Simulated scan of single mutants.
Amino acid sequence: MKYDAQAFPLPPGFHGRLRIGLLGGSFNPAHAAHREISLIALHRLKLDAVWWLVSPQNPLKSVTGMAALSARLQSARDISAHPRIMPCTFESAIGTRYSADTARALRKLYPRMRFVWLLGADNLAQLRYWKDWRGFAAAMPLCVLDRPGYTGKAAASLAAHALQPHRLAMSDAAALPDRAAPALLRLQSKLNPLSATLIRAAQPAKASIAAFGRRSITRK
């Protein structure tokens, strides 16, 4: 496969064994809460980088109102504003739509890397509806970060109960990337109420995604 820096954002001086957090999503648009949880994960999990996997199309979301991939990627670049937060189009490059397939592809392509998939608590609450969610959880360690209104739902979810025997304490956060999957860490974080849905509902019809992203950074 031909190397494409937009799809595979390897840092300068790459030597093959890095600790990478993966934050998947539509990023329609990207916003400050994405950046906040990425910074928390970088610090608490001792990661070398966080890749934002800008999805070509989330199978659980409607195509109605979905901005073009190029616009969503630019939105992610505008918001990330950090040398170790790297938006990319990996899923488009390799043709995956489901997180389980993406996780397995990454493990195969970069066998020496240590990956952790970053999930909002809302995603843990609905993980049972993801295609091959058990295979996904077995592919790499999962780090779940709090989202407003979802802490209780996440804790009571089928996935949380299934993964309870593999749960780590928060004090073991830095060890998570080196753990064999399945492994689950619930990480308390600042509860930012922003969501892409609220942003799309609130922004004026003619406002661009990139412009909203810059205003989000200014407010932070």
Rank of each mutant, 00 (worst) to 15 (best):
D4Q: 03
D4F: 08
A7I: 10
P9W: 07
P11S: 09
F14D: 13
G16S: 14
L23E: 08
S26V: 07
N28F: 09
A30D: 06
H31E: 02
A32F: 11
H34C: 06
E36R: 15
S38E: 04
I40V: 13
I40R: 14
S55F: 00
Q57N: 00
N58F: 12
P59C: 01
L60G: 04
K61S: 09
S62P: 04
G65R: 04
A71E: 14
A76R: 01
D78V: 15
I85M: 13
E91T: 12
A93P: 10
A93N: 10
D101I: 00
T102H: 00
R107S: 13
R114W: 13
F115L: 08
W117P: 01
N123K: 05
L127Y: 03
W130Y: 04
W130M: 01
K131M: 08
D132P: 04
G135Y: 02
F136A: 01
A137D: 03
M140V: 09
P141D: 05
P141C: 06
L142P: 04
R147E: 06
G149Q: 02
Y150F: 15
G152D: 14
A156M: 09
L158Y: 00
A160G: 01
A160Y: 02
H161F: 11
A162W: 14
H166L: 10
A169F: 00
A169L: 14
A173K: 11
A175P: 00
L176H: 07
A181S: 07
A183E: 07
L185W: 12
K190G: 08
L194N: 10
A202G: 11
A205W: 07
A205P: 00
A205L: 12
K206F: 13
A207V: 14
F212C: 13
F212A: 15
R214S: 04
T218A: 14
